[in-house]
Design a protein around this nucleic acid. Structure first.
Lengths: 230, 230
DNA sequence: GTCTGTCGCCGACTTTTGTCGGAAATGCCC
DNA sequence: GGGCATTTCCGACAAAAGTCGGCGACAGAC
């Protein structure tokens, strides 16, 4: 996990912005404008970044660490909507509209993020059609992801979803497990509970589709997995 | 169901556009520009408007009739993502990006829609920041709806989802049923199968929360329903 | 009016998912 | 290295969801 370059300066933010595709060809002046009034904040594991219903304004820019965006139930279960890694932006809803955030963001590990002022982003997008177009594209990506998540939850079994997740997350044939990627977290991503995940894992293992060890899951039979995942 | 004013003219489209909040204060010239090259099409029940994966470009404007936007599974089940009635716009993804549509749109009854040219919309949005902002807002609405759908599917039982749907759809205390609103369609909206919907309905009826008849469902105990719906 | 296909209804059954109690294994802190 | 908390694992069970066959009611077509 990349550690922060200690309390970052505004110039770090500007460099950071320049590297993001969303703000790529925006010109120095625009970047400086964006950085105006931005605030830096670090989070400890399990700390809430913003809560569902909050009027959390402004665009967030995750600098280091990992977060999850979740929706919780009354009984304490939660569904992960999105995992966020270094370099990703989030809170599009709160950034470009006055609507309250529909979900909660929580730190999975020590993390640091910039929060750009809502007006800075909206005003700039108003003057830079290219930027507005990028925002629209990133919202389109959110929509596509959510549509796929809905289809997964509604039309596939837990094993099928797990198979898809493994295929998606695999680098080569191995899915590395970070420290916080417990079966519980996996269950939240799949929309189920830890016990069921464990059974599903053992099921796939019994069919020799995967091999699990403590730090990683190895795909043994990709074709078989893909069939399960449809 | 409002019938079409017979083969509509382009001026009808312009009037129609002027009435939509998205295009409200756009000025005559802009509306005429939007209408340029727009095409009109009518659909028979069950006809596919566009298919998942299509490069369906341009913004659609439903003039009369109802459509559903769905995601289908290999086994023939389908999940409704959105119901569309007269006056609504759809295909935001295909309209504002080059991505293929993530879902399929199907006519539920005889329907008619305008399809605006993608370039007409995108070019105008580029010059009119207010329009771009509206597009962003409507995508934000899509996201919020999808997030809620995910939470429903993942965290609530079928009865809970049904209770929510009834509360949402009720006008006063009655949920009117259109001809095409069969238990099968209801099941697709709830992410389940007809038999389960029927059981759930009978269950709610047994608890005296609702009363069902052929053309409508009447809410008898709103508080009780809301408790079920959390 | 009759016919026919769809829809709704029902009971019995299977499969999937979720729950519970508790035992092992592991990682982490001191 | 010992001790504690978390995670994993497991079997048995409970609940929810899905499947199946069949029957009856209804709406629309002719």
């Amino acid at each position: 996990m990349a550690e922060p370059p200690s309390p970052p300066r505004r110039t770090d933010l500007i460099e950071h912005l320049a590297r993001l595709p969303e703000f790529h060809d925006l010109g120095e002046a625009a970047l400086i404008e964006l950085a105006q009034g931005a605030s830096w904040r670090e989070y400890v594991p399990d700390e809430v970044v913003f809560l569902e219903g909050d009027p959390a304004a402004g665009l967030f820019l995750l600098s280091f660490g990992w977060l999850k965006v979740v929706k919780g139930s009354a009984e304490g279960r939660e569904q992960v909507l999105r995992l966020l890694g270094p370099g990703e932006t989030f809170n599009e809803i709160g950034a470009f509209t006055r609507r309250p955030t529909p979900a909660t963001a929580i730190a999975l590990e020590h993390a640091g993020a910039w929060q750009l002022r809502q007006n800075a982003v909206m005003d700039l997008a108003r003057r830079e059609p290219d930027l507005a177009q990028r925002m629209i594209e990133s919202m389109a990506d959110r929509i596509v992801d959510l549509v796929n998540l809905v289809a997964d939850l509604s039309l596939r079994t837990v094993s099928g979803r797990l198979a898809r997740l493994l295929i998606e997350d695999a680098v080569g044939d191995v899915v590395a497990r970070r420290r916080w990627e417990t079966q519980g977290e996996l269950a939240s991503r799949l929309g189920t509970v830890p016990d069921v995940v464990q059974r599903a894992l053992r099921g796939l293992e019994a069919e020799r589709l995967i091999a699990t060890s403590r730090q990683e899951i190895r795909i043994l039979n990709r074709a078989g997995l893909e069939k399960l995942a449809q």
